[in-house]
């Protein structure tokens, strides 16, 4: 599926996740955050950068891992991205939805 954000055409899957991370840029992140009703603060951006880093290292993501990262604890993660934090944050970060149950 194709989607046009900030004048650029990006490839997304049926759930709206970018299928090609190289197409991601800060402006696209801002736009995706807006769609999720989130106004990105510097804290949000730190978390997103961390998630992207883990994705590049091919580390599978889970709530528990994020909580132990030292970047953000679980409570703050939920307050930054109140509705389904891992799903929302990865979507904004332009990385695949984690297939994790914990």
């Amino acid at each position: 599926m194709e989607k046009i954000i900030c004048g650029t055409t990006i490839e997304v899957n049926e759930e709206g996740y970018l299928t090609n991370f190289s197409q991601w840029c800060t402006e696209i992140g801002d736009e995706l955050a807006k769609e999720a009703n989130i106004d990105l603060s510097p804290r949000h951006r730190e978390v997103i950068t961390y998630l992207q880093g883990e994705h590049k290292k091919e580390v599978p993501l889970s709530i528990r891992k994020v909580g132990k990262s030292g970047v953000v604890d679980i409570k703050e993660f939920y307050s930054l991205f109140p509705l389904a934090p891992l799903k929302t944050a990865t979507k904004i970060a332009g990385i695949p939805k984690p297939a994790s149950c914990i």
Binding site: S62, R64, K65, G67, I74, K75, Y78, I102
Partner: peptide, 17 residues
């Protein structure tokens, strides 16, 4: 499979609301 023990799991649940 990276499953937390009961004590840590309770902390995760509380932190998650």
């Amino acid at each position: 499979i990276d499953m937390p023990d009961v004590e840590e799991f309770l902390d995760i649940l509380t932190a998650s609301g």
